[in-house]
């Protein structure tokens, strides 16, 4: 149960003269929910982009399920390995329906070529449609399946983005500020939801989030970044007590 799912060593990302991530170590073990927090511009999303292959890290290594991910591996291949992600600013396929959004995520696991797909020679299309419908049903989105993604209210768009990421059959899911723009009620529902999908789909979760209630409630461990550097790591209780974190990010209780 405690095998390492994601193991980042000495990750460094420089953009010209700016060091966005500086020598970061980070480990996520199987079944954990790990949070990555820190002030705006601390380099959290850059870490996600390095892990998912959007950026090629300047230095350091990333291992997934014990195997190092080669430099220059493209994002699609990394998703295929089993790392799914959501985006800070929602990135759905806006002109497509809810159903189609989920189906796109199934494409890479279909055994087909352009001919068998166009002429429906194998039953792959039917298989993934059934899978996608089952997923939508589990997620309570089935009644919206023919709705254009862009017509959904904000909260449901967030939900769909996570459902779509789940459709790629991930081992590890990276959530980039899933609670952004949500009210306290929605945020606490989201907390429950994340814990629920972790159990149901046997997921490991790495989450970037600014809502401290949510972070403290669901995280097993927390990493705190500031100016690209790791300034603290530990359990929620340890982080809340850590003076450096309070100074850099959390602040004193009454000015939040």
């Amino acid at each position: 149960m405690s095998g390492s799912v994601l193991n980042i060593k000495n990750l460094t990302m420089r953009f010209g003269g700016v060091t966005a991530v500086d020598n970061l170590p980070l480990e996520v073990r199987r079944g954990e929910i790990v949070a990555l927090i820190g002030p705006n511009g601390a380099g959290k999303t850059t870490v996600f982009n390095c892990v998912t292959g959007v950026y090629e890290a300047t230095d350091g290594s990333v291992s997934f399920l014990g195997k190092p991910i080669a430099k220059g591996t493209t994002p699609d291949k990394i998703t295929k390995l089993g790392i799914a992600r959501t985006f800070q600013n929602i990135r759905l396929f806006s002109t497509m329906t809810v159903f189609e959004n989920v189906l796109v995520a199934k494409h890479m696991r279909m055994r087909q070529n352009i001919f068998s797909a166009a002429f429906r020679i194998r039953k792959e299309e039917q298989r993934v449609r059934d899978e996608a419908l089952a997923l939508l049903e589990e997620q309570g989105l089935l009644h919206l399946k023919d709705e254009a993604a862009s017509n959904l209210p904000y909260g449901l768009q967030r939900h769909l983005e996570i459902a779509r990421a789940l459709a790629t059959d991930p081992e590890l899911i990276l959530l980039d500020e899933p609670a952004a723009g949500m009210n306290p009620q929605e945020t606490s529902e989201l907390a429950e939801f994340i814990q629920q999908i972790r159990g149901k789909y046997k997921l490991t979760v790495l989450i970037i989030e600014h809502h401290m209630d949510l972070v403290m409630q669901i995280s097993d461990r927390i990493y705190v970044l500031d100016f690209g550097k790791l300034i603290a790591t530990g359990t929620p209780a340890e982080i809340q007590e850590n003076q450096r974190v309070i100074d850099a990010y959390l602040g004193v209780a009454d000015d939040a």
């Binding site: 994002p75 992600r85 796109v104």
Partner: peptide, 13 residues
Amino acid sequence: RDDERAAEAMGVS
């Protein structure tokens, strides 16, 4: 067409 980066994140080459 809708979103290249999201498509890539869905495992689409």
